[in-house]
Computed example of a mutant assay.
Amino acid sequence: MRPIPVDDPTDPRLAPYTAMRERDLVGREGRFIVEGEVTLRVMLSEGARFRAESVLLAPERMEGLAELLADRPEGVPVYVAAKAVMSAVAGFPIHRGVLAVGLRGAEPSLALPPAPAPGLVVGLVGLTNHDNVGGLFRNAAAFGADGVLMDAATCDPLYRKAIRVSAGAALTVPFARLPDGAALLAFADAHGLVPLALSPAGRETLTDLTPPRRALLLLGTEGPGLPRELMARARTIRIAMAPGFDSLNVATAGALALHHLAAGRLG
């Protein structure tokens, strides 16, 4: 299928891309936006969990992506528009010249290998920063976690910026959303996962912890951290730091903890 040129920002075929910045936070009728070459390549790869509906490119990006687009799934149109047109559609200046619309499909669930096989899941509680959520999905992919669970308050990992920060991992790492922290603990109990709550107030030091064979790593928002009632029902761990300092960005702290917990699974 040849690329389809579009020179009118009001063309109805570009409607899913309209006013991206304003509409990203509230969803797009089962759609989401992917931005940039790295995430487009992930979206069109065999490992992606979501299907592309269309691609929108600036003309100068066509040559470098020609081979990728030639192998795209049947029925995925590629629209080509000047950056000025793309910017008018999106509602802000487009610099990368690469956009795509993905289809969410049914609300995903998280399937784990049954015990006694090893298992490692990341649990996010109250994380409302898209950079942190994207970073944690990237960490989960890098250290071979089986998936990510989120409570209702955690932001959407398919928000455009979260996907970009995750380097596309939000499109490949299995995830599911549960109502609250108690539901995450119930999931851990049902699947034989040891709940590990990461907090500066943790009773055990991460480096002294023998990684459980199956674990749920719980991470809370920066500042308030994990709810006290959730920590009371979990094994609490902390990362040792220099005297007088006990704070790390949650994505950084999560990376350190995941590396330690996954050490026996990494090549």
Rank of each mutant, 00 (worst) to 15 (best):
S166C: 12
G254M: 05
P114R: 01
P113F: 01
D131Y: 09
M231T: 09
N132C: 02
D8C: 11
D7K: 11
M241N: 09
F143Q: 13
V122G: 00
R23Y: 07
P211V: 15
G225F: 04
R233C: 09
M1Y: 09
F50R: 14
H95D: 02
Y159D: 05
A167I: 04
V76M: 05
A240G: 14
P113D: 01
L217K: 10
K83L: 11
G192F: 01
R31N: 05
M86I: 07
G135M: 04
G105S: 07
A215C: 15
I239P: 02
F137S: 10
L68E: 04
A197W: 02
A167W: 09
F50S: 14
R164C: 06
L149G: 12
V55D: 15
G225C: 07
L193P: 01
R21F: 07
P157S: 04
A84P: 08
A106H: 08
L217N: 10
A48W: 12
F143Y: 13
P93V: 00
V125L: 00
T221K: 06
I239T: 01
G105P: 05
A263K: 08
P200S: 03
D208S: 15
T236E: 14
G192C: 03
D131I: 06
R13A: 15
E67I: 03
R228Y: 01
L217Q: 11
Y79P: 06
E222I: 03
G135A: 06
Y17Q: 14
A201T: 08
L196T: 01
F92V: 02
V194P: 01
A140K: 10
L258R: 11
L217F: 09
G30A: 05
G47W: 13
T10Q: 13
A253I: 10
A263W: 10
V89K: 08
L196V: 01
V85K: 08
D11M: 14
L136G: 04
M241A: 14
L127N: 00
G123I: 00
V42W: 15
D156K: 09
G36A: 06
N139T: 15
S199E: 03
L184W: 05
F32N: 04
S45H: 12
V55T: 15
L256T: 03
D24L: 07
D151F: 02
V78E: 12
G119Y: 00
L171D: 14
L178Y: 13
G30M: 06
Y17T: 12
I94P: 04
G220F: 03
A81E: 07
A251S: 13
R164A: 10
L230Q: 08
E22W: 09
M62K: 14
E60T: 11
T236Y: 06
E29G: 09
A111G: 10
A115I: 00
A182H: 06
G181D: 08
L217Y: 11
R104L: 04
G119R: 00
G123H: 00
R28N: 05
R177F: 13
E53F: 09
